Simulated assay, not measured.
Amino acid sequence: MINFNGSLFPENKEILTSKNRGLKYGDALFETLRCVNGTLFFWEDHYFRLMASMRMLRMEIPMQFTLEFLEDEIKKTIKENGFENKAVRVRLTVFRNEGGLYAPETNDISYIIETKLLDSPFYIINESDYEVELFKDYYVNKDMLSNLKTTNKILNVVASVYAKENGYANCLLVNTDKQVVEAINGNLFLVKGNTIKTPPLGDGCLNGIIRKKLMEVVGATDEFQLLEESVSPFELQKVDELFITNSIVGIQPISKYRKKQFVTTVSKKLVGKLNAKARMVG
């Protein structure tokens, strides 16, 4: 079952029309998050990112769109699907209502909530082969729109096709200054000795929730130094570890980039701290 504006429908129910602005113009935002045994991981962070993004895109935020309201709607959808005591992937999509061409006739919005079962209730390190390559056909813009989780993801789609055609698990995206900013589906971290580095938001990477949480984790330790600095492609083969972060996987180590093989020592240390933070904050 999916939740469309508070009403529940079967997944195969046709509820959107050809006039949908998310379809026609990518005029939509989404949040993807974990829910385990009724607890939404880092829900406040997801909620406030969504609200800030809606304001930036001039969407009208409904009066009832409180933290508690959307949490209840998510949990209602989870319960209707019989997933209350499971690990669940939740996607909340918000789109501007139908009408207009590029200029919308209204800034009012609708929403859809979808759920899907996950294999594990915890973030775990996947140590299988995970080779990546740079995707250089098109570039990420260095602006605040690139920080938002919108449905304008054609660059990510084309990069995913490129990765699949060439046998890579993922691709790393570069911005218009040829700096590495992120992976197709998450933020990028580099580890060299006791230094952990991630590209800054000003370079055009997604303002990721797990990126934020991991930066908090690293910043609270004496073991590592955290740097938020631009990443040159030439750095990638000189570091000890590379890993990707997102709200569903948590931490995904990269095993190989070109001729360089990477270890997972720091990834394994951090995933336990990330799980602890998820259980503490919810």
Rank of each mutant, 00 (worst) to 15 (best):
L101C: 10
N175K: 06
G100V: 06
G100Q: 03
K136P: 00
Y130A: 07
K136R: 13
T151N: 07
Q179H: 12
V90K: 02
T176A: 08
N107Q: 12
R96H: 07
A163N: 08
Y162K: 08
N170Q: 12
M144P: 01
Y111S: 01
D119V: 08
I124R: 13
R96M: 02
V161D: 13
E80H: 14
D137V: 12
F83Y: 13
V180T: 05
K164P: 00
D119W: 07
N126M: 05
I112K: 05
R89G: 04
R96C: 04
F135I: 03
K178S: 15
K164Q: 14
T106F: 02
F83E: 07
S160V: 02
C171S: 12
T150N: 01
L92V: 14
G167H: 05
L155R: 03
A163F: 09
N147S: 12
D119R: 14
G100L: 03
E73R: 11
Y162S: 07
E105D: 13
F135M: 07
I125V: 14
N126T: 08
K164D: 13
K153V: 03
N170M: 06
N166Q: 12
E114C: 09
E127F: 09
L148G: 00
V88H: 01
I112Q: 09
V157G: 02
L172C: 05
A163H: 08
L117N: 07
A169E: 12
E182M: 07
A159G: 09
L101Q: 09
T150V: 00
E131R: 12
N166M: 09
M144K: 14
I78C: 07
S110L: 03
T77P: 04
L172K: 00
Y162Q: 04
F122H: 12
Y111A: 04
C171Y: 02
S128V: 03
L172V: 06
S146P: 06
L118F: 10
T77D: 08
G99K: 03
K178F: 15
K136C: 11
V180W: 05
Y138R: 14
L101A: 11
N166F: 10
K116G: 15
L172I: 08
V90A: 07
V180I: 11
V174E: 12
K116S: 15
S128D: 15
L101D: 13
I78W: 01
V90D: 05
R96Q: 03
I113L: 09
I124P: 00
L134T: 09
A169V: 06
T77I: 05
M144E: 15
D143R: 01
E114S: 14
D143I: 02
G99Q: 05
K149Y: 02
S128P: 00
A87P: 01
V88A: 03
G167A: 05
N107V: 04
K142M: 14
E73D: 06
D177E: 15
E165I: 10
E165Y: 10
Y138W: 12
E131K: 13
E84Y: 12
N166P: 09
P121I: 08
S128Y: 10
P121H: 11
K76G: 03
E105R: 11
K149R: 11
N126Y: 10
G82H: 04
G100E: 04
V132N: 04
T151P: 00
T150Q: 00
M144Y: 11
A163D: 10
A169L: 06
E73M: 11
A163Q: 10
S120I: 01
D119G: 14
K149P: 05
D129V: 12
Y168C: 02
Y139V: 11
